[in-house]
Design a protein around this nucleic acid. Sequence first.
DNA 1: CAAAAATTAAGTTAGTTTGTCAACAAGCGT
DNA 2: ACGCTTGTTGACAAACTAACTTAATTTTTG
Lengths: 147, 147
Amino acid sequence: MKLSKKSEYGLRALLELTLAYETSSFVQRQDIASRQNIPVEFLEQVLLTLKRAGLLASRRGMNGGYRLIKPPSHVTLGQVIRILDGPLAPIGCVSRTAYQKCDDCPYAGRPSCPVQQAMGAVRDAIAGILDHYSLTDFAAGARNASS
Amino acid sequence: MKLSKKSEYGLRALLELTLAYETSSFVQRQDIASRQNIPVEFLEQVLLTLKRAGLLASRRGMNGGYRLIKPPSHVTLGQVIRILDGPLAPIGCVSRTAYQKCDDCPYAGRPSCPVQQAMGAVRDAIAGILDHYSLTDFAAGARNASS
DNA sequence: CAAAAATTAAGTTAGTTTGTCAACAAGCGT
DNA sequence: ACGCTTGTTGACAAACTAACTTAATTTTTG
C-alpha cells in the first residue's frame, strides 16, 4: 500500500509544470530537480515516461526543457500514478485497468471471493479519490502556501 | 499501492480460522495451506507473526495447530494488514500509526503540502474501509459461496 | 561549429519478497 | 519411556524491485 518515489517525484515535478502551464514555457530538469529536491538523473527517467505517456512535451537545446501539454484540469493523479506505478488496485483480481485472475486463490473468479469483496471496496475508494483529483486541485494547495 | 502475498495469505488463513472459531478447535498449518493453496513453510511465518501480535494461539503435538483467540467481530482487516505489511498510508507523512516527516519535500511539515492533502484523503479512505471491516464481515462472503 | 540540453541504455546498490531447509522443542498416545 | 506428530526457530537464497548513477549519444540552437 505504498506510493513509490517514482510517483512521488512525478507528482512533485508535475506540480512545478502545472504552475508554469499558463506561461507555456519550458522548464528544465535541473530547475525542477533543485526546486523539488530530486536527483536530476532519476527525475529524467520519470519525465521521460510521462512524456511517452503523452502528458509532456520536451525541447532540446538552449531554452529547452519540459512542458505540460494537457490542461491540468484534465489530468488526474490517478492517471499519473497508473503510468508510473501501475494499477491502483491492491491486488490484480480487482483491477479495472489491469485485471488478472488470481492463480492460487480457492475462490478464484467467483464473485463471492472475500478477498475480492474487501479489496474491491478499497480499490473503488482509492480510484474514487485519485481519479477525481486533478493537477489543478493538486496545485491549489501549493499556491496558497507561497502567499 | 499493492497488497503483499504475506497479507493476502494472512487474510486467507484467518478466513479458515474464523470459520473454525465456534468449534474452538485447532487447525493445522497444512490443513490451512492445502485448503488455501499456500506454501506451508511460508504460511508458518505468517501465522507466527499473527501469533506474536496476539491474534492466534497455537498448540504443539498431535491435534495441535492454530486457533483464533479474539472474537472475529473484533479483529479488522486493517489490524491484520498493519501487522503483516506495515502502515496503510501510501506515504509516511500522512500515517497516523507510523508518522514520519518527509526529508526532501520542499513543503515538508506544512499543512498545505499538496502531496499530504491528496494522500491524506487516500489514507483516510483506505483506513475507513479496512478498520471497519471485521473478520466476521470478511468470512460472510465465503459462507454464502459454499452453500 | 560548439555549447546546451534532452535521450537512451546500461549498470549499480541495497533492500524486499517469496520461499526453502535443517535442526530443535514440546506434547500425545501407547 | 518411546516414538510420532506437530509447532518453533533461525539461517539462507533466489528473484525481483526500487532508487539511483554513469556514460555515451543525439538533437537543437546560437
